[in-house]
Amino acid sequence: MSSTENPILSLKNLHKSFEDHHVLQGIDLELFPQQSLAILGASGSGKSVLLKLILGLMPADKGSLALNGQKFEPTRQKDSRKLYARCGVLFQHSALFDSLPVWHNIAFSLIMNHKLPQHHAKQKAISLLEDVGLDTSCADLFPVALSGGMKKRVGLARALATNPDILFCDEPTTGLDPIMSNTIDHLIHSLAKKHQTTVLSITHNIISLPLLASHVAMLFQGRIIWYDSIDKLHKSKNPIVQQFIQGKQKKSSPASP
């Protein structure tokens, strides 16, 4: 996990437990500028918990994080503000604000934080809507009127509205059909390339990986057990990685036939 460049984000020995359940047991990971890294793992492996620790939505039990080489404590308001100013987040279920129309969802940060006048913010939101392949007539709709795929697109537009350095995607294709999943993967890939954004995705979707990531980290039993470029994923000799790729259960598993 090394590069000649300095990492934009690095995690060192991150631990998280819920009572007796040790979800993360010492995560070390580095994310380099303009890299697209996917954290791959089975359901319940702690992928989303890891993202919440990075975003300061949950405190870590142990370990440290650094943003551009500077240590930061994401649950501390001063530090989290620095991170949030530089990142956009695409949530698993989009997390659009129900009470606001689509354009206001997209332009939310521009209005609230950047104090952009509403008509300018709306224009910017409409141009972002076009970027994510949605018709501009959607701008005045409310999230309840959108399909799952449209919500994801709006969520992506919101995440990219402030031109973030880092884009975090939590299971970006969950709940979408294969065609829509592919469209969203393409969008993330092309928009990240266009805006030169670093992407950290959380996924269990093997099919999405080639578009979503240049590098993959495999999370298993609270640890990163494999990290390399996407090209080497299928050639990996790691039995856990192979098992995950092939979608087979362990022979010793009680659930196996």
Partner: peptide, 10 residues
């Protein structure tokens, strides 16, 4: 997760 979205939007 709308509250989490609010937090990450500062």
């Amino acid at each position: 997760e709308q509250i989490n979205a609010l937090i990450t939007l500062s």
